[in-house]
């Protein structure tokens, strides 16, 4: 089944990207995602692609992993591609048949949007590939800590996220186990229409809910045993320190942003 969820899975390594401060990575990832949408023509988008390829190269994440991360969005990719080709009109008509026509602008927009989505996915999975989920939630906790002023329990939220991430593989295993158990009892999970199949899942999800509550209960005991009393007075093994590496990365990203704005200005916009 869905044993292998790559999105949000850490790929161990010791590259410069891995070693960057998670907070900086978080902020820069967001920044660069915004940059993708700032791009207005193929030149600025090209710069973005160049930056992304460079980042991937530096991170030493194998190309196979990167391709794997694109796979789940392939359908969306094709869908947006087709939609854009046929529905965006303008410029020279390259191909026309009955009510369907493909125009220059349509193709450009389609390609542009597809590259955008690919870059977006690669950048965001680069963050999750090079940062452990613990580091990620840690970074989030620290970035959001100013919200404590508004009495928002940032630590509790971060802890909840860590635990949710931690239990995803465990619960997937559990679902598989329950499904097999129900199949062994003659449950038919794979045939029939949508409604019938959805109904067939009830005997899977009820036991899943029950066991999740039991797990939560046991986990709470285990955490109490390890002296967890909430966020106060906790220290961290892995400290976060902004280093030279992080400022270099920041500079590079700012340079890319400047480049994009310049290129947008000098060349005609596509989208």
């Amino acid at each position: 089944m869905v044993r292998d969820i790559t999105f949000g899975q850490y790929y161990p390594g010791s590259s410069a990207v891995h070693k960057m401060d998670a907070r900086m990575k978080f902020v820069l990832t967001f920044g660069m995602i915004v940059c993708i949408f700032v791009c207005r023509n193929f030149f600025s988008l090209g710069l973005m692609v160049l930056f992304t390829s460079a980042a991937v190269a530096v991170s030493r994440i194998p190309l196979k992993m990167i391709l794997k991360s694109i796979k789940p969005v392939a359908v969306i990719l094709i869908f947006t591609g087709i939609l854009n080709i046929f529905y965006t009109k303008g410029g020279e008509t390259w191909f026309s048949f009955w009510k369907i026509s493909v125009t220059e602008k349509g193709v450009y927009t389609a390609v542009f949007t597809m590259i955008r989505i690919i870059v977006l996915v690669i950048i965001s999975s680069l963050l999750t590939y090079t940062t452990t989920p613990t580091m990620l939630t840690d970074a989030l906790e620290r970035l959001l800590s100013p919200l404590k002023v508004f009495h928002i329990k940032v630590h509790t939220l971060a802890m909840m996220m860590t635990l949710a991430l931690r239990f995803i593989p465990t619960l997937i295993e559990e679902i598989e186990r329950i499904m097999n158990a129900q199949k062994a009892r003659g449950a038919d999970l794979e045939s029939g229409g949508l409604i019938r199949r959805a109904k067939a899942l009830i005997p899977v999800f009820v036991p899943l809910m029950v066991s999740s509550f039991r797990r939560a209960y046991e986990l709470a005991f285990a955490m109490t045993c390890r002296c967890y009393t909430g966020g106060d007075g906790r220290t961290r093994m892995k400290q976060m320190k902004l280093g030279l590496r992080d400022f270099i990365a920041l500079t590079v990203c700012l340079a890319v942003l400047a480049g994009i704005i310049t290129l947008n200005h000098f060349f005609p916009k596509v989208i």
Binding site: T132, T134, T170
Partner: peptide, 25 residues
């Protein structure tokens, strides 16, 4: 064992207890 491991990386999990005790990094 599944219901008492808190973190997604082995060493982070081992660190959970001492972190709660407020031990120096």
């Amino acid at each position: 064992p599944d219901n008492q491991i808190v973190a997604t990386i082995v060493e982070d999990d081992v660190a959970f207890g001492p972190e709660n005790l407020g031990v120096e990094p």
